[in-house]
Design a protein around this nucleic acid. Structure first.
Length: 726
DNA sequence: AAAAAAG
């Protein structure tokens, strides 16, 4: 096999291997004449034609030899075979559904987006992107083993990618324009809303005075005594050049916590009287006065200064909870899936999946979904939401004559949207078996992998689409995906899907689904943030949650450690020194990468998960934690929501989250399905107050203590049996 | 800051 560039990155010989002519095309031969093996470009050879869109589509659709085959129906049911993408061997390695299988050589193939220099040659240290270089502790590079290093190298944004970015931007603009031109859309009728990006002047970071960014650092400054000893000082940009802004001439801002309505006075979570939206004084986050909760999210949202008070773009507010019908856990004792209206085949599969009897959230929502109503469902992290929407969704498709409808090229009738590819993949792992039990098919539509196979599946016909917004929209624009028959749409992590950057694509996608189709919104932190979608797409939704699911009743022990920043890596190392599975969250991709490296250097098998990795590495790295090949995964918030890995019993937040919801979701990676777990959050001294407020909003009780390397506490927290809550 | 986004 020529493709034996197997893992490890330990392949110094690669450059000297005899080239295999023919296969690799232009790679054969040396460039320089006079060099042994020089091969001049062959002018006589037919020029390789670039494919145009039609060629590609034809290929994706109907592989020349196979597409003609008379009846797909004669073959064993599609779902029973390992999915075959069709024809192109080379694509195999990137097939998502193979994420579970043991690593094979093929996986190592450098992906397009990275270029060949990324994983092949073991020498390219100097090509590493510059993240963290200078901050990096000075360990001796020469001593480091060379294995595995290169696999994790973070690719830089290539010119091509930049070009693609620009291109995508254009296409987005075109799509918006097309929609504006189309009369039937209600685009123009809608009142202008703040997130109509295209209407907004392109305002950037720069035209606004420096604000919250510096905030973390600023308070600390005054407290730091050894001002002059600090090395990094000189690099600070022009501290003194800044206009002498006094603290007082600023308008009051959101983080002037004391002035805000006293949140802490809220009655306990569940006992709140049914307050309607109207009898409350208007507050800043009320939909009509405020441009969208998206301003929690920062960078590209800015209130219109004419009408809005200069306000809180970093505010992390607790939006009002939706009034929900609560189901008591006790109510579901003895109830079976069959009682809820789920058919025998599906019930059987659920049992195989480990769901013997319904969890409360499932018992609450399944019957309502089966009625055909729009549903908002809130269930704690790890409480079984996927089955809560997956099972009744399949059941509904069946009832609608779904089983009989196997026509090739049929349009999908259900859509499940998720915020990350990993989550989409994971949902498919649950929903696919359920669907197959009744002869329905699912396919994953997400980015980062070649689209041909996805398009092929669509053209053969599938019933349920599970995917992320980007690729779905892309295929819609390419007219390869038609959602007009979609009668059930699920938004998993619905509140997140309403955040800036997600909301608009999600809206556009939902507008492509069938009018009046059923909509299901699920999340552990479902709140009024989804109001925009609810208003536009849901009809008289039925809201459900499980009573008594507050943080106090959770199985998670929360700790906050106040640490010196220079001690941080050492403390993380000591916390990660354990047998059990540990998930570490960092705020940035670069830091995630750096921490993973540091831990490996310290002798703990660790890997990373973040958006700078290509999809096959993301899938593989996550799988390494799942399979136990490594016990430590350092991730960005890509892993914060929904991802289920069994038996993570320690979550370390190397950087504290900004939002209480993020805290809840990150923490929810442990303590799943009633198991015990510990969450340790590391914060600098200056962040104590913000952290307190965040915990307050999250309604979490956590002990906050100073910690230093070597403290006995670290060993206790790392102990594999989580320490008992205070 | 992160995530989602072509062959």
């Amino acid at each position: 096999m020529p493709k034996s560039n197997k893992s490890g990155g330990f392949k110094p010989a690669k450059n000297y291997e005899p080239r295999t002519p023919g296969k690799g095309g232009p790679k054969a031969g040396s460039r320089s004449p006079g060099h042994r093996g020089f091969k001049a470009a062959d002018e006589t050879a037919p020029r390789k034609q670039r494919w145009n869109a039609d060629d590609r589509s034809a290929r994706g659709a109907a592989p020349s030899s196979r597409g003609e085959r008379p009846a797909y129906g004669d073959r064993p049911a599609y779902g029973d075979r390992p999915e075959r993408g069709g024809h192109k061997r080379g694509e195999r390695s990137e097939r998502p559904s193979y994420g579970d299988r043991p690593e094979r050589g093929g996986n190592q193939r450098p992906s397009r987006e990275n270029g060949f220099n990324k994983s092949g040659t073991g020498t390219g240290r100097s090509e590493r992107p510059s993240y963290g270089r200078d901050e990096r502790p000075a360990y001796n590079r020469e001593e480091r083993p060379s294995y595995d290093r290169d696999e994790r190298r973070v690719p830089q944004r290539t010119d091509r990618q930049k070009w693609n970015d620009a291109r995508n931007e254009e296409r987005r603009a075109e799509a918006v324009k097309a929609r504006e031109d189309a009369p039937k859309r209600t685009w123009e009728e809608r009142p202008k809303r703040s997130f109509d990006r295209t209407e907004r002047p392109a305002r950037s970071f720069d035209d606004r005075p420096k604000r919250s960014f510096d905030r973390d650092d600023r308070p600390a400054r005054t407290e730091r005594p050894a001002y002059n000893d600090r090395p990094a000082r000189t690099e600070r940009p022009a501290y003194n050049d800044r206009p002498a802004r006094s603290f007082d001439d600023r308008p009051k801002r959101s983080f002037d916590r004391d002035d805000r309505p006293a949140r802490t006075e809220r009655p306990a979570y569940n006992e709140r009287p049914a307050r309607s939206f109207d009898d409350r004084p208007k507050r800043s986050f009320d939909r009509d006065t405020r441009p969208a909760r998206s301003n929690e999210r920062g960078s590209d949202f800015y209130p219109n200064r004419d009408t809005k008070p200069a306000f809180n773009q970093v505010d992390d507010v607790v939006l009002e909870r939706l009034e929900a019908q609560a189901t008591l856990a006790g109510d579901v004792d003895g109830v079976t899936f069959a009682d809820l209206g789920i058919g025998g085949n599906i019930t059987r599969v659920l049992k195989e999946l480990g769901a013997e009897s319904p969890f409360p959230i499932q018992a609450a929502t399944i019957p309502v979904v089966l009625e055909g109503r729009d549903v908002l469902g809130r269930g704690r992290t790890g409480s079984g939401k996927t089955i809560a929407f997956g099972a009744p969704l399949v059941e509904r498709l069946m009832e609608n004559g779904g089983g009989a409808n196997r026509k090739p090229g049929r349009k999908p009738r259900a859509l499940i949207l998720a915020p990350t590819r990993e989550l989409a993949l994971q949902i498919d792992r649950t929903v696919q078996p359920i669907a197959r039990a009744v002869g329905l098919f699912t396919t994953q539509i997400y980015g980062g992998v070649p689209q041909a196979r996805q398009v092929g599946a669509l053209q053969r016909g599938v019933d349920i689409i599970i995917g992320t917004p980007g690729r779905i929209e892309d295929l819609i624009e390419q007219r390869r995906l038609d959602l007009s028959e979609v009668t059930i749409t699920v938004l998993d992590e619905a509140d997140h899907m309403c955040d800036l950057g997600f909301l608009e694509p999600v809206q556009r996608i939902l507008r492509h689904t069938k009018d009046g189709g059923q909509k299901l919104l699920f999340s552990a932190t479902l709140d009024k943030g989804v109001a925009t979608l609810v208003e536009e797409f849901l009809v008289n939704p039925s809201v459900h949650e499980v009573a008594g699911e507050d943080q106090a009743s959770s199985t998670i022990d929360h700790r906050v450690l106040v640490v010196e920043s220079r001690d941080k890596s050492e403390i993380i190392r000591q916390l990660a020194d354990r047998e059990g599975k540990t998930l570490i969250f960092s705020r940035t991709r670069a830091y995630a990468e750096m921490l993973a490296e540091q831990l490996e250097d310290a002798g703990f098998p660790a890997t990373s998960l973040h958006g700078d990795l290509n999809q096959s590495r993301r899938t593989r790295n996550l799988q390494q934690l799942t399979s136990g090949r490594v016990n430590v995964l350092v991730a960005t918030d890509v892993a914060a929501r929904g991802i289920h890995v069994d038996d993570i019993d320690l979550v370390i937040q190397a950087d504290a989250p900004d939002e209480y919801k993020t805290y809840l979701h990150r923490a929810g990676r442990t303590g799943r399905a009633g198991k015990k777990g510990t969450v340790v959050t590391l914060i600098p001294r200056a962040r104590r107050r913000r952290m307190d407020e965040l915990l307050d909003r999250a309604e979490i009780e956590a002990e906050m203590v100073d910690a230093f390397p070597g403290d006995a506490l670290l060993g206790e927290l790392a102990a594999d049996t989580p320490v008992a809550p205070r």
